[in-house]
Write a protein that binds this DNA or RNA. Structure first.
Lengths: 278, 278
DNA sequence: TTGCTCCTCACGTCACGTGAGGTGGC
DNA sequence: TTGCTCCTCACGTCACGTGAGGTGGC
């Protein structure tokens, strides 16, 4: 069973599959979605033919797919100017490194969750009055939260510096339950001020509403923050009446303060209606 | 808008969602597939109620899902005896560590693919006669290949030791194109011998067929082996007539020889029909 | 000519997400 | 009572995989 191969290098899909380690089904799929088009398609038979020059492109595609890059994003990388492309790719590699670090921390956090007993948390109660603040508000998807959060913090800090505002505490946030329940919801990031201030960019004057709160502090990076949410929620459920108002976070110590994530401190405050004696 | 919570801790799906950082849709899905059943379901309204005790289970589920563990596998972990469970989980964590290392190497390999130019490969030609061997053969899925390969190598080495067989070369393999094209196909792992030997376990006597081969050597771990397959395939396509026979690999230096993957050497041999003068 | 390789088409899978349309609970 | 929370059901999505059924190429 010999097979004559055209010197012009027209590879059948089967041969191309061996050379690229991509399955035939996958190659046909990539043709359908326009990610990797065969160099030639026989109009009569529909047979796909590839060139040796396409092998390295296929390798790049395979590597990116192995790393979970969506096909759509990958296509735009491949469609980019050869000059821009490398930069685009290297930038994405950095994002992948971040993701790798995140997975690493998820592994560590899971290990901790399983080997360490549940941390008992200290819950205190606090009544806070309404407070003037400068705030950035928006409806955010949970996936976009990290980026939104960073941008909002930067804007607030810039506004405080630019207008020399007098703050009365650390930056905080209000998060609707929807944000967790529906993966999309309203979030407000604010910096509390001595007095009202004029709007600056996206930052607006805002009155943080008064509230009665059950408060605890989460230590460490936010990977583990669900544990503290769960423990505080359990505490509130078992000892108080919970209220349907946004949960609050206050960033006592965070990225701007130290790179050592174990030293981060996030106050979490759950709105309650206090019953007697608890 | 106050909401009274039962002291017996029956959490609505919305509250449970905030405490576990799992979306309501996800929680309903986990109920449907039996991964995380609410403690109580109101027969009248269909409302789901959870207990505070279920929060930590939900956290474990979330961590594992973040790490890509399939729901089915996760369910069996949760269904396991409390004693076995921790062991099962820690074993899986080790597998995750492996996966993490693999992702790490995929990132490095991609970076290399983009920054280093394509390595020119040295191709030599060789005619090999039919050779007696002891072989483990099977139809394997690509996903299971790593495990199958390891087991087969171990069996062959054990058989050689047990029966004091005289080998004439390193362990090698034959891989059908199907294995790449269809993600499932026939693979044969063999150790060449001076003379035929009796079967031992899965290992059978086997005659490796004679062949004319275009040969090159892949240096380093197998993450990058597609580059060498691609380069050798291109070379063969451009200079020779390719033959529809299984590709061969010979493990000149591999895991058993050194842990330093950069020192691994895998010979790849592509069957050809030599044309004159090339 | 045989048998393998390639083709299309329709549907399945996994782990949810997205509405539509509706009822119940504080 | 209002409006929010919860419900089900059917379908969508992403990146392919799985056959069925059929034709073409060496």
């Amino acid at each position: 069973v010999w097979k004559l191969i055209d010197m012009r290098a027209n590879l059948t899909i089967g041969r191309f599959s061996v050379m690229t380690q991509l399955s035939v089904k996958t190659l046909r799929h990539y043709h359908r979605v326009g990610l990797l088009e065969p160099a030639e398609v026989d109009a009569e038979t529909g047979y796909r033919y590839y060139t040796t020059g396409q092998v390295s492109t296929a390798h790049v595609i395979r590597r990116f797919r192995d790393l979970g890059m969506p096909v759509e994003e990958l296509r735009s990388v491949l469609a980019a100017d050869p000059d821009d492309r490398n930069a685009l790719i290297l930038r994405h590699l950095d994002r992948l490194e971040d993701q790798l670090a995140q997975t690493r921390s998820a592994v560590d956090s899971l290990r901790a969750l399983l080997t360490r007993p549940a941390t008992p948390i200290a819950v205190t109660y606090r009544s806070v009055p309404a407070t003037p603040a400068l705030a950035v508000a928006g409806t955010v998807r949970r996936d976009d939260m990290a980026g939104w959060w960073s941008a909002a913090v930067d804007e607030l800090r810039a506004a405080v510096r630019a207008h020399d505002l007098r703050t009365t505490g650390a930056i905080g946030g209000l998060f609707d339950a929807e944000l967790f329940a529906e993966d999309r919801g309203r979030a407000v990031l604010f910096v509390p001020l001595e007095r009202e201030a004029a709007a600056a960019g996206r930052a607006r004057s805002y009155l943080v509403p008064a509230a009665e709160l059950a408060v605890t502090v989460h230590a460490g990076p936010h990977t583990d923050i669900d544990r503290t949410y769960g423990a505080l929620g359990s505490h509130v459920t078992e000892h108080e009446l919970a209220v349907d108002e946004p949960v609050r976070e206050t960033y006592l110590c965070y990225r701007k303060d130290t790179e050592d994530t174990s030293r981060w401190r996030t106050e979490i405050a759950w709105p309650v209606f206090r019953t007697t004696g608890s």
